[in-house]
Amino acid sequence: MDLLRSIRAVSEASGTGVIDWAKAGEAAKASTDPGALDLTPAERRGYAADVQDARARLRAVAGVEFDVPDTIEVQNRHHWIDANLATFHNVMGPVEAATNARLPDLSRVVNTGSMAFTLGFLARNVLGQYDPLLLADDADADHGLYFVHPNVVAVAAELDVAYPRFRRWIAFHEVTHAAEFGAAPWLSGYLESRVERGVDELVAGGLDRTAFSELQTAMTAVEGYAELLMDRAFDEEYADLRRKLDARRGGGGPVRQIASRLLGLGLKRQQYERGATFFERVADERGVEAASVVWERPEYLPTSGEIDDPGAWIRRVNP
């Protein structure tokens, strides 16, 4: 980790865009220890076995057919930054194109520094990631499944839990997202359209509340359904893992707390809880396969009101 090199990279931001993406990536990696990636053959087999076991268990429990991505990577933190630079760039593209800063050079340095901080913070904290490649340049590109091995090992030690058990839990959680996107080929396009509409309206100086509401509700369903499948499919008790990880998210120093709030990580936890409550109610009344109907077509997504009133969704979709 070289903070001076990171600062220098940000100060050298240039070009015509709002963010110098190459320098943002360079600065993020300079300020972030990549972490060790010297996996033993047994560890590599462990990751592969966890993913395949999760796929088999989730298929059986949810009653949905899906495959895991061909791209399954065990990464260090720098690999994760490289893998996500393009995603961030694609999302920010419309904003960059429409921005006309009064002091473009100064603005570019500030924005590049902010993006470098965001990438570095996430790279030090992400454990696993299912990447549906939203807004990717290649619409036919295979989705990705990543595990940031140094973070998995470090957090398992910090929480005082067995690393293989913790790794398996992370694998199950990320494969639940592969199950959702695999069962709903329309889901990526649905989310992309809401992101694009919301960003386009922001660029025009307005706010598309409908697009953001639909995006928020869909992501609540995505996170809540994942929680339901974890509860029903993981092959051992994990309440202690959830409790310890939640306590860790609530701790940390002031910089970590501020960054978590700015990046909306607390909001994501609310999505888990609100969505999980919805799907637990549906599954308790009609079974997990009835809850899985949500992925058959966009019209079956719950509305924001139905998230808080599962009975209304059941009456509409599963009468």
Rank of each mutant, 00 (worst) to 15 (best):
V110A: 11
F117P: 02
H78P: 03
E180G: 12
W169M: 00
G25M: 08
A42P: 02
G251Q: 05
V18H: 04
A283H: 01
L85S: 06
W80V: 05
P132H: 09
H177M: 06
V203R: 06
L262K: 10
G275H: 06
A247I: 10
R315C: 03
Q52K: 12
V152Q: 04
P185G: 11
E237C: 00
R281A: 13
G63P: 01
R194H: 14
Y146T: 02
I7V: 10
D33S: 11
L133S: 08
A239V: 05
Y238F: 15
D53C: 09
E196C: 00
A162V: 14
L119G: 07
L37N: 04
G205V: 02
D235H: 13
G198S: 08
V51S: 04
E73H: 05
G15H: 06
G250I: 02
E158T: 11
L133F: 01
G182P: 03
G275K: 06
R232M: 13
D137K: 11
L127C: 00
L103H: 06
N318Y: 09
N111R: 04
W80P: 02
L262Y: 09
N100W: 01
W80T: 07
Q271H: 08
A178P: 02
R102L: 11
V203N: 00
E43G: 07
W21G: 05
A86G: 13
I19N: 06
P164M: 08
A83F: 00
T277C: 04
Y130F: 15
F121Y: 12
L267D: 14
I19V: 14
G250E: 14
L3E: 09
V155N: 02
G287V: 11
R197F: 06
A156L: 09
K23P: 00
G15A: 10
A56P: 00
P150R: 04
E236F: 01
G264Y: 01
